[in-house]
């Protein structure tokens, strides 16, 4: 998609015109971002609710029928099931096991483990495991 950015005077109203052949999830996300700013998801911690930036989520995990999202240093419970989160979160998130989805932009590096699995080291130093069956999806998402 060709993108043109024009800088306008402070007094002029900012606007965006998107010319598309058909509406896709990526376009919807772009529109949502333009209209609403940075997307957030409601997380619960110690009884308090917090708006958590989607771009700050490192990974989401399902444990004992509860779902949790993890940012750089924090963990929040969310009211969504993992499959619902997959639908809400954008294309930067990928399922890496039956109980985990990961933000691929937060992966520092990957390393092969035993049984064709991969371990991923995240930007905050945490290590997570990418199950063998999902390594293929990761490679596909990387365009490999």
């Amino acid at each position: 998609m060709r993108v043109t950015v024009n800088t306008i005077p402070e007094k002029a109203e900012e606007s965006a015109v998107i010319s598309i052949h058909s509406m896709t999830a990526g376009v919807r996300n772009a529109i949502s971002l333009l209209q609403d700013g940075e997307p957030t998801i409601t997380g619960i911690k110690d009884g308090e609710t917090y708006p958590v930036s989607v771009y700050g989520i490192y990974y989401a995990e399902s444990v004992d029928d509860k779902s949790f999202i993890y940012t750089k240093n924090e963990c929040y419970e969310v009211k969504y099931r993992l499959y619902e989160l997959e639908g809400i979160l954008d294309g930067r998130f990928i399922r890496i096991s039956k109980s985990m989805i990961c933000n691929i932009r937060k992966i520092r590096s990957v390393k092969n483990a035993v049984n064709s699995r991969m371990t991923a080291t995240l930007l905050n130093g945490e290590t997570i495991v990418i199950s063998r069956g999902y390594v293929k999806d990761l490679k596909k998402r990387m365009g490999l």
Binding site: R105, K106, I107, R108, V110, K139, M142, L144
Partner: peptide
Amino acid sequence: VNQALEKIRD
């Protein structure tokens, strides 16, 4: 995979 991650990593 690591080379591809380099391009998109935050």
